[in-house]
Amino acid sequence: MSEAPYNPVVIEHFGQPRNVGRFAAADDVIAASAGDPEQGVRFDLSARVQGDRIVALRFEVYGCPHCIAAGSLLSERLQGATLEELRRWTWRQAADELEFPPEKRGRLLVLEDAVRALATEWQRRR
């Protein structure tokens, strides 16, 4: 397979994804997931929060190289995010930077679902 289907950002994150893993359940940890490996993609997100900010975010992913890169990119972008910033995150931010092929955009909506679910969980805990 040539590297052509993936841009350099995808290849870099795929090779060395940031912030992989998950936090064990705790009072200051929120978690959410979306997707199903049977459908080809699943994201699990967990974050440690302090006050009104995320201080650390971890992700796990079952998916194609674009999805792995999207999870990794998200984990960097949402460090330090507020609940409002979490709610405002949309799939388009990752789509542009990672040059997501149109036929794969549904997979980014799964990631957006996971982020929304994380925001909802945070709201509920507050």
């Binding site: 992989v20 893993g21 998950r22 064990a24 997931s33 699943r42 699990d44 971890r58 796990e60 079952y62």
Partner: peptide, 13 residues
Amino acid sequence: RSFSPQTANVEKK
């Protein structure tokens, strides 16, 4: 597998 949801390790707090 190390960062796949079914098998990833739990990070200790």
